[in-house]
Design a protein around this nucleic acid. Sequence first.
DNA 1: CGGGTATCTGAATAGTGTTCAGATTATGGG
DNA 2: CCCATAATCTGAACACTATTCAGATACCCG
Lengths: 208, 208
Amino acid sequence: MSSSKVLRSKSVVRESYHHGDLQAALLEAAVNLVRANGPDHLSLRAVAEQVGVSPSAVYHYFPDKDSLISELGDQLFIQMAVMQREALGNIPGNSARAARLRYRELGRTYFRWANSEPNLFRLMFGGFCKIEKGGTHESEEAFLMLSKCLDELLSTGVITPTMRRYGELISWSAVQGASTLIIEGILPEAAFEELLDGLELAMRGGAK
Amino acid sequence: MSSSKVLRSKSVVRESYHHGDLQAALLEAAVNLVRANGPDHLSLRAVAEQVGVSPSAVYHYFPDKDSLISELGDQLFIQMAVMQREALGNIPGNSARAARLRYRELGRTYFRWANSEPNLFRLMFGGFCKIEKGGTHESEEAFLMLSKCLDELLSTGVITPTMRRYGELISWSAVQGASTLIIEGILPEAAFEELLDGLELAMRGGAK
DNA sequence: CGGGTATCTGAATAGTGTTCAGATTATGGG
DNA sequence: CCCATAATCTGAACACTATTCAGATACCCG
């Protein structure tokens, strides 16, 4: 559908065009408004106005408002994967200790994202972006990073082979769920580090 | 604030009143519309119309649309706790086996609710109902049922004392997260039973 | 340079949340 | 029993929303 999908900081290409790269500009305006007002309460007209364009111009790039939001969600998944990759890059080494640090940091990055931008997190997981059930999703990359991290935990003897089987499922679900429960105010913020402790113990499979 | 908070099937009291118990009627109409169209896309006017009342009548019971949605969310949490209690009632006994069945059924009921009514689930956990962070929440009752179930698992020797400490946090987070990831189409539906398997293994703390 | 086309605008339609003055109805006190 | 009072609901209005479409605009290529 669209050629350039990654959010750019400003509109760079073709300064004196009709508007420049409008698709990106619209998405950037939209992400700011969602960040401030929540995924519901997003107004197409406000998006258009902030870009300095007529409301109807939006319909040249998105069939309707929901599609804009959905596309925005896809970009947020990509952005999240980038953050995960950066977080992993800060923790080098092949030791068991390094693998454990990476595991925790993956979860922490996930939660930090949710907690610092709850409205964007809600956009991603609140049914706003329609995800086709068969195809491959943008979240695939984050999933693969987690898988690799779990492989390291297994090969360094931190986790048991049995628990390795359930590693992605339990880790991702728990981190996702805790993030939701915390940003919605049901669990306190301190619960997340506690969850990571428990999760590590559980995955090690030796807690008496 | 409101005296009668529980959803009743139809308007029962005072048939020939102004309208009968309108607050309840509005909430019931709203829950049906949210179920069908999602928490975003809920129209106040549609709610009023389905009840057969003027749009402005709503403002005698709720200060604005968001408050109606928030109140609806509270009721859904209560309704969910009722389902959990019913599920537990179907599994009597003090054996370790019974406790394990109850544990699984608590999770299953949670997920079944999410999966059968994704839009209501999104309403509950999508930032629509404002939850005051200090006070006690409607989810407290479900939390206590889980705690009691974990106590039973501990006393019957199914789980370790160490993992008991993290029981509520890990279980609730994992079930919540898996429910979200599945209904949003990121994980397949079959993943939930697998999660329960892994969760039980992890909580037992003996998986090599 | 001029025709064609992608891009954007203006106006219009139908629907939204919200407010408020007033009409309607039930209820409690004489 | 009836009337004043208060609770309840309506109608119309306002500002705002998504969406459509005929037309104006500005770019690009031959």
